[in-house]
Amino acid sequence: MDPVIQHTILIGMAGLVCGALLALVSHYFAVHEDPTVEALTAALPGINCGGCGYAGCAAYAKAVATENIGLDLCKPGGAETVAKMAAITGRTASAREREVAVVLCNGSRERARQAALYNGVADCAAADLVAGGGKSCRFGCLGFGSCARVCPTGAIEIADSLAVVHPELCIGCGKCTGACPRKLIKLVPESRSIHVLCINRDRGPDVKKVCDVGCIGCTLCSKACNNEGIKMDGFLAVVDYTVPLNSPEIATKCPTKAIAVRPGVKKEAAA
């Protein structure tokens, strides 16, 4: 026989034997895996941001398949993912409104005063431990970008020692809310555009001393909306995000310009 044919057959046989062996072994050693978990993992965005509270997309998928966990926990995925997951599991669920982060401080370098020269470690948590860094306001943004460093999508920009979230890039995972030592960052419904950009709870004169754009607790905004939408919490106006608030002109009432109308207005303007 021609050696070429002979050797082709030889290798072919070897391949067959190997294949058969693998087939046999995979049959006898088969591990049963839940196909829904795999399908669910594929349906999730796969960026492993951890915003759902699980260690990555696969862990969340497993929890959904086995523990009857809600389908709407994936923030980056939004409505599309919820629909896909509902189709796979046969459950019904409606998407939550997409949330984006907002930094509740507007005290940039020009607007907020500095109490001291801080020349330590350029990290918010570290600065907060040393007399609260250089800024006079003990509630305000330190501007060293600890939030920006944990953001998986680079949605936070530090400009003039103030963190600003770009809502179009934000996936609402909430990592920054945990990274901020001053708890300044809040997740809010995407459609909301009116925010009180201050969490200073001190009295008006004290706020005025440290910042030009702080909330001085004058109550003009809460009165303008009949205490709905914006409520007073001591000396601080707080937006109630569960109540609709559709009047951008309320921002003009604020004497210190602490209320801002931020982009992300698109849906609200259309409504």
Partner: peptide, 9 residues
């Protein structure tokens, strides 16, 4: 592949 299959089980 064999080792992987066996180990998995």
């Amino acid at each position: 592949q064999l080792v992987e299959l066996v180990l998995k089980k």
